[in-house]
Design a protein around this nucleic acid. Structure first.
Lengths: 182, 182
DNA sequence: TCCAAGGTGAATCGGAAATTCCGCTTCCAG
DNA sequence: CTGGAAGCGGAATTTCCGATTCACCTTGGA
C-alpha cells in the first residue's frame, strides 16, 4: 500500500471517530470526508460502504475500552472508582456507534464478543460498587452502567455538565455522597 | 364547519399529540393519519402543512402547561413541590415539539410569548426551590429546569425510570434528600 | 519517465417522507 | 328527500437528502 494511502486511511478514521464522538452516529460521509480534508470518493476507496467504516471504528473503540476495563478491574481498590475511571476513559471514544450498529452487531464476528465482554465487565464493576455501598442498590447493575454512559459518554457530554454532575451524584448512596462531590 | 369535520380535526390533534408525547417530533404525517383512523389527505385539509400542525399542538401544550404553572406558583408552600408538580403535569404533553420548532418559534406570534412566559415562570420556581434549600445551588435555575425536563418530560419517560429517579435525587441537596425519596 | 495506485467530486441512485389531486362519500339546508 | 357543497381517501407525484458510483485527473515510487 502506498504511503499516502496509508496516511489518508488514518485521517479518515481519526476524523470519523472525532465526529462520531462529538455528535453521534448521524454524520454523513460527505461531512467525514470534509473533516478529513479528502473527497468522498476516497472514503469509498478505503471502505466498501458506510457500515464498514462504522464497524472498524466501533471495533477500535471497543477494544480500547475493553483493555482499559480489564486493567481497572484487575487493580485492587474501590469498585466505584474503577468503574468511573473506565467510563471516563470511554468519554472520548465513539461508543454511540455501537448502539447504532445494533442490528447485526451481535452477529458480527468481532463486534459481538467485544460488546458482550465489555458489558459483562462493566456490570461486574457496577455490582461490586453496589456491594461496597458506594452506589444505590434500588436499580440494577445494568441500569447503573446505562446511566453512567448517559452521564459521561453521551455525545457532546463534558465532565462539568449539569447533567453529568447530577447523574453521578444521584447514583451514589446517600451515605457515599456525604463527602466531597465526585 | 360540518360536524364530522370538527370531530376529525379533534381526532387528528389528539392522535398527533399522543404520538409526539410518546416518541418525540419525528413522527410522519402518514403515521399520524393512521393513528387518527383517517387518510393523509384529511390532515392536509385541516392543516396546510406539517409545521402548521406542529405549531397548533405545541401551542396547546404550552397553554395548558403555562396555566398549570401559574396555578402552582400562586399557591403557597414548597417551591420544589410546586416545580415538581408543574413538570409532572408536562409529562403527558408533547413538549419536545417546542424545541424542534426552534427556528422561528421565537418569532411565531403565539409560540414566542408562551415559551418565554413558561421559561420565566419555571426558572422562578427553580430559584425559589434553591433558596428554600431543596435543590442544590451549584447549578443555575435554568439548568435545574432543563434537567427536570429531561427527567420527566423526555419522550417515553416513565415516573419510575432509573434515569428519572436518579436525576430527581441528584438535583436535591444532600440535606433535602435525607428523607424519603421523591 | 512511466503507469498503476490513489484521489476527486459532480452525477446518479434510492428510499423515506411531504404534499397534491381528483374521484368518491357524506352531511345537512331547503 | 335531494342537490350539491364540504369532506375524505389514498395512490401518485414531488421533494429532500444522504449514500454510492464512476470517468477522469494526480502522484508516489520502481
Amino acid at each position: 500500500m502506498r504511503a499516502d494511502a496509508r496516511r489518508n486511511r488514518a485521517l479518515i478514521v481519526d476524523a470519523a471517530a472525532g465526529l462520531f464522538t462529538a455528535r453521534g452516529p448521524e454524520v454523513s460521509m460527505e461531512e467525514i470526508a470534509q473533516a478529513a480534508g479528502l473527497g468522498v470518493g476516497t472514503l469509498y476507496r478505503h471502505f466498501p460502504d458506510r457500515r464498514a467504516l462504522l464497524e472498524e471504528i466501533a471495533a477500535g473503540a471497543l477494544r480500547t475500552l475493553l483493555d482499559a476495563a480489564r486493567d481497572h478491574a484487575a487493580r485492587p481498590g474501590s469498585r466505584w472508582d474503577a468503574l468511573l475511571a473506565c467510563v471516563r476513559r470511554g468519554a472520548d471514544l465513539p461508543l454511540a456507534l455501537t448502539k447504532s450498529l445494533s442490528d447485526g452487531a451481535e452477529a458480527h464476528p468481532e463486534l459481538g464478543p467485544l460488546v458482550r465482554g465489555l458489558d459483562a465487565m462493566l456490570e461486574d464493576l457496577a455490582e461490586g460498587a453496589q456491594r461496597e455501598g458506594a452506589v444505590r442498590d434500588d436499580i440494577t447493575p445494568r441500569q447503573v452502567v446505562g446511566l453512567l454512559s448517559v452521564a459521561v459518554c453521551r455525545p457532546g457530554a463534558r465532565p462539568d455538565d449539569a447533567l453529568t454532575i447530577v447523574i453521578l451524584d444521584g447514583l451514589r448512596t446517600r451515605a457515599a455522597s456525604r463527602g466531597v462531590r465526585t
